[in-house]
């Protein structure tokens, strides 16, 4: 299939970071190899104040990725038209190089549960999610990227593998994918699968952005490892190795370092971005 990655996002094939407000001064003074930043859409949907002022200033210096965490694209119910309108407004004024969301649900009834909850991979889920992606892309008049989840459990009812499910969504909707390599490592460990086999089966031609991040380790009831997607630590070596594998097979892509809890000083996050730059240099 033709490599169409460039049309999924306009982000540069360079390191980016998940933006944290406390890094504003430092990142403006010394961005290091960081060429783009990613923000959570919902944090910039207020009427004004510092968040919007910072985003306006940053968008003049950096390419911007708007990453939604609240659309509930896997929800059983219709998408929230108010939230779609807010997204449309944010994307209109901030003109990001990329918009992405998650293969997950978070809203049920009128309640937002503030977590990315898992989906069974069935034909029903597939049609529903595809319809929702169609609706989003139609409304926003741009392709979106859909991110693979980190899984802590599986559904007995699933009839699709996650990679086939994502590939079919790409085929049906023309959306791109956000490949979170840390999520792949977490899901593979948690479900006893091979991360390398997952990546080999992943439709890399549709990947418009890659995520790496840190995670925590626990154990389940049987003493098996249970990794938690906490984004509160450095990226571990096996995840960097998976990134190398993806880049070697798929070529350079925008690579984002996520760090959302126990956020360190800018220099620590910048060093992670430098490591991503090194990985990209190997394939550029």
């Amino acid at each position: 299939m033709l490599d169409t990655a460039s049309r999924f996002s306009d982000l540069p094939a360079a390191p980016g970071v998940g933006y944290k407000a406390q890094h504003f001064d430092a990142i403006c003074k010394d961005a290091g190899p960081v060429a783009w930043i990613e923000v959570h859409a919902e944090n910039y949907m207020g009427a004004g104040g510092r968040p919007l002022a910072q985003l306006r200033a940053l968008s003049e210096r950096f390419a911007l990725s708007i990453h939604g965490v609240g659309l509930s694209i896997g929800g059983e119910e219709p998408l929230d038209p108010d939230h779609l309108a807010r997204l449309q407004h944010l994307l209109k004024w901030s003109q990001p190089a990329s918009f992405s969301e998650h293969l997950a649900w978070s809203t049920h009834g009128a309640e937002f549960l503030n977590d990315l909850l898992p989906l069974p991979y069935t034909n029903d889920t597939l049609s529903r999610v595809a319809n929702h992606i169609d609706e989003v892309q139609e409304r926003l008049q741009r392709p979106m990227l859909l991110e693979n989840p980190s899984s802590y459990l599986a559904f007995a009812e699933s009839t699709w593998s996650e990679t086939d499910f994502l590939a079919e969504l790409v085929r049906r909707t023309g959306c791109g994918l956000l490949l979170d390599v840390n999520n792949v490592f977490i899901s593979a460990t948690n479900l006893g699968l091979s991360a390398q086999a997952y990546l080999d089966a992943f439709p890399l031609h549709a990947v418009g952005e890659i995520h790496v991040g840190g995670h925590d380790a626990q154990t389940d009831d049987h003493g098996a490892p249970l990794l938690i997607d906490s984004h509160g630590k450095p990226v571990i070596d096996p995840v960097w190795a998976l990134l190398d594998r993806v880049l070697a097979r798929g070529g350079p892509r925008p690579v984002l370092v996520e760090w959302d809890t126990d956020v360190p000083d800018w220099s620590v996050l910048r060093a992670e971005a430098e490591r991503a730059a090194t990985a990209l240099a190997l394939v550029t």
């Binding site: 802590y152 459990l153 599986a154 559904f155 007995a156 009812e157 948690n190 479900l191 006893g192 699968l193 389940d220 009831d221 049987h222 098996a224 249970l226």
Partner: peptide, 15 residues
Amino acid sequence: PGLQDGQRAPAGNRF
């Protein structure tokens, strides 16, 4: 029920 680990055992504390 219907939520499980990678070996098809009940999900237990994974939930």
